[in-house]
C-alpha cells in the first residue's frame, strides 16, 4: 500500500518533529488507522469511492475539516463549558464543512455535484468528532493539528485505495482516463467491467479485505 507522506509542518518551533509529534502523524496511518482499526467513517468510504477524482477531493475536504476543527477546538478548549462542548464542536465542524462545500461549489462545481450530499455529511463523520473528543479537547493546537493530519491521511489512503480498485475494475479507468484498452471489450476478448465495483456492496468487500490485510500485518486483535 502506498504510504501518504505528511508534509513537514512549517509552524513548528523545533527544527524537526519530536518523536512524539511524528508518532501523532504516523500512528493513524496504520496502528490506529481510523478506518481499518477503529472502523470509523465507513459510510463515506463506501459512498464516494466509485471514482478516484471525487475520492481525492473528498479526502482533501475531510483533511481540511479535521485539521482545522482540531486546531480551533484546541485553541478554545479551556473556554468551552463542558456542558455544551459537543454542540460547540458541532458548530465549529459545521462551519468548516459548509465553507468547504461552498468553496467546492465555486471552484470545482462538477466534482461538487458528484459528491452531492456527502460533503455535507462530513459533519457526521465519526472521525471528526472522535478526534475532537479524544485529542483536541486535551492538547495544544500544534499537536492537535498533527493528530488531525495523521488521522485524515489514514482515512485518505484507505479511501483512495478503495477507489483505485473500484474505478479500475468497475469502469476500466483511473482519474477518468482509460487504463484498460477499449479493444479488450471487443467480443473476441470479451472483457467486461465488474458491475459489483460500481455499487456500495462492492466497496464493502474491498474495505473488508483491506481491514483484514492490515490487521494481519499489524497482528491486531479486537479486545474481548
Amino acid at each position: 500500500m502506498s504510504v501518504v507522506t505528511a508534509p513537514a509542518p512549517v509552524k513548528d518551533s523545533k527544527p524537526l518533529l519530536s518523536k512524539k509529534d511524528r508518532k501523532l502523524v504516523t500512528d493513524p496511518l496504520s496502528d490506529s488507522n481510523p478506518i481499518t482499526i477503529q472502523v470509523l467513517g465507513i459510510c463515506s468510504a463506501l459512498a464516494v469511492t466509485t471514482q478516484m477524482k471525487p475520492t481525492l477531493v473528498m479526502a482533501i475536504s475531510v483533511t481540511a475539516v479535521v485539521v482545522f476543527s482540531n486546531m480551533l477546538i484546541s485553541m478554545i478548549r479551556n473556554l468551552i463549558p463542558s456542558r455544551i462542548r459537543i454542540i460547540v464542536q458541532l458548530a465549529i465542524v459545521s462551519l468548516l464543512v459548509i465553507l468547504v462545500d461552498e468553496i467546492l461549489k465555486a471552484f470545482v462545481y462538477d466534482v461538487s455535484k458528484q459528491l452531492s450530499v456527502f460533503v455535507g455529511l462530513i459533519i457526521t463523520n465519526c472521525i471528526v468528532m472522535g478526534r475532537l473528543e479524544a485529542f483536541a479537547m486535551g492538547n495544544k493546537p500544534g499537536p492537535s493539528m498533527l493528530d488531525g493530519l495523521g488521522n485524515s491521511a489514514g482515512y485518505a489512503w484507505v479511501i483512495l485505495a478503495v477507489s483505485f480498485i473500484r474505478e479500475l475494475f468497475g469502469s476500466g479507468k483511473l482519474f477518468g482516463f482509460r487504463v484498460i484498452p477499449e479493444a479488450w471489450y471487443a467480443p473476441e476478448i470479451g472483457y467486461v467491467n465488474n458491475g459489483l465495483m460500481m455499487i456500495p456492496a462492492g466497496a464493502l468487500f474491498i474495505v473488508a479485505t483491506i481491514i483484514w490485510i492490515q490487521r494481519s500485518i499489524n497482528n491486531y486483535t479486537e479486545e474481548a
Binding site: 473556554l79 468551552i80 463549558p81 456542558r83 455544551i84 454542540i87 460547540v88 458548530a91 465549529i92
Partner: peptide
C-alpha cells in the same frame, strides 16, 4: 457563561 459562550460562537 454558558449562554454567553453559545451566543458568541453562534
Amino acid at each position: 457563561y454558558v449562554f454567553g459562550f453559545a451566543f458568541a460562537v453562534t
